[in-house]
Design a protein around this nucleic acid. Structure first.
Length: 376
RNA sequence: GGGGGUGCGCCGGAGUUGGAGAGCCGGGCCAGACUGUAAAUCUGGUGUCUACGACUGAGUAGGUUCGAGUCCUACCACCCCCA
């Protein structure tokens, strides 16, 4: 797996590059739709491919391990074969579930014990078996097992947790290096920077992560409720330390404005549930800001969801029609808005790339942010 | 034509031995939230007003009573049975 850095903005740290994987290339900056349970909720693979133009999607180790289970995924020949998405995929390790399902787990040095949110059964996740599971799932990029710390998080806990994540990382790397891909193509392991909102911890963590010389690096533990200023500050510090020639993945971020700001700080890869979750709840992102398509004011607005969209779905369906679908609780409503929001996110990162290459990113970014920044 | 039954919220239920209702449950409607997905979910609002408090309100109009959504009378509407 190889990353080519193609352009760097002269006025900020934004970059454009290409990550070459066995399932195709990823042109950065890029947004990666989240497909936790082997599906980007409500969206067909051909829609991801043709209309949204997704270049890579996510899956989740914790969820896929619980259901359908690694035996089924192995039998299928890996996640790509199972869900039919034959472009690059990335799996998260379950580290986020250490945070989001904190009431269902116990952390020890060995690993984290979860009681399944599906049936209550007990499962131990260790750095080693999380690597094994991700080998079986077969994503192109797999993530180290970490603890995503909550916000707020006191310094002492953040420090202790960070060190444990670093120790877990060494175990992940050892297991990863001791095992081979199961399906005949390369997988890359990305380590994750932690350290909560503490500058010294972030610096220390970024240095530790960089020292492993992995193919790409990730920043975790942000977008968990901290102020945006903290998110940007931490991202900035970490980007100044992580190697320039390797892709940087900011996990779980974010809003369109978050993404633009963090591209400016030097981030190449993003993922977030907002475009799909909000879509299912009737919130759509447009070039002019976000709108709630369920609001009564759209009931007789027969203009397209987005007349300027580059994808077909967003130009084809009207606001009034999509509102009607939501009012009627028709499945097509969330499907259309999910496609729309993802297409918008992919358009956004694609435009950013164009402007970085053209050399006018910062100006374009600032204009976009002021247009979009109605608390996006 | 005769007999019986039922009437309160935007809708459907529940609730009444006469004793605190702007008010229970569900739906609808109107808004809001959501950041490496326990999420097609969750939260709030939904009579009126001069609004942290008031006022009006149980088909309509009267009556009985300290007190009526509840009892009585008339009328109206709807449903059922008989002709």
């Amino acid at each position: 797996m190889k990353f080519d850095l193609e352009a760097t903005d002269s006025k900020c740290n934004a970059r454009a590059g290409t990550l070459h994987t066995a399932h195709g290339k990823i042109e950065t900056p890029i947004f990666m739709p989240v497909g936790t349970i082997a599906t980007v909720k409500g969206v067909h693979q051909h829609e991801l491919h043709n209309d949204i133009k997704a270049q890579i999607i996510l899956g989740n180790t914790y969820h896929l391990y619980l259901r359908p289970g690694t035996d089924i995924l192995e039998k299928a020949g890996g996640l790509h074969k199972f869900n039919g998405f034959n472009k690059p995929m990335l799996t998260d390790s379950g580290g986020y579930q250490v945070f989001s399902l904190s009431h269902r787990r116990k952390i020890k040095e060995e690993g984290a014990t979860f009681s399944s949110h599906i049936d209550g059964s007990k499962h131990l996740f260790t750095p080693e078996n999380v690597m094994d599971v991700q080998r079986k799932i077969g994503a192109d990029i797999i993530m180290a097992f970490d603890e995503c710390t909550p916000y707020p998080c006191d310094y002492k806990y953040a420090k202790r947790s960070m060190h444990m994540t670093h120790r877990w990382l060494k175990r992940c790397i050892n297991r990863f290096n001791a095992t081979d891909p199961l399906y005949g193509y390369e997988q890359a392991l990305f380590p994750i920077v932690q350290g909560s909102v503490y500058k010294d911890l972030r610096k220390q963590s970024a240095e530790a992560i960089a020292s492993h010389d992995c193919i790409g690096n990730a920043i975790g533990g942000l977008s968990v409720g901290e102020p945006h200023e903290d998110m940007y500050e931490m991202t900035d510090i970490v980007c100044s330390i992580l190697p320039k020639e390797k892709p940087r993945y900011l996990m779980g971020v974010g809003t369109p404005v978050n993404i633009l700001e963090c591209i400016a700080l030097g981030i190449d890869m993003f993922d977030c549930v907002l475009p799909t979750r909000n879509a299912r709840h009737g919130l759509i992102y447009t070039r002019e800001g976000k709108i709630n398509i369920k609001n009564a004011k759209w009931k007789d607005d027969f203009s397209p969801l987005d007349p300027d969209a580059t994808n077909e779905t967003s130009r084809f369906y009207t606001k009034a029609y999509v509102r009607h679908l939501f009012q009627s609780k028709e499945l097509l409503g969330p499907q259309i808005t999910s496609i729309h929001n993802l297409a918008f996110y992919l358009w956004l990162t694609g435009e950013a790339r164009k402007h970085i290459k053209a050399g006018d990113f910062l100006k374009w970014k600032n204009e976009m942010v002021s247009k979009l920044d109605r608390r996006l």
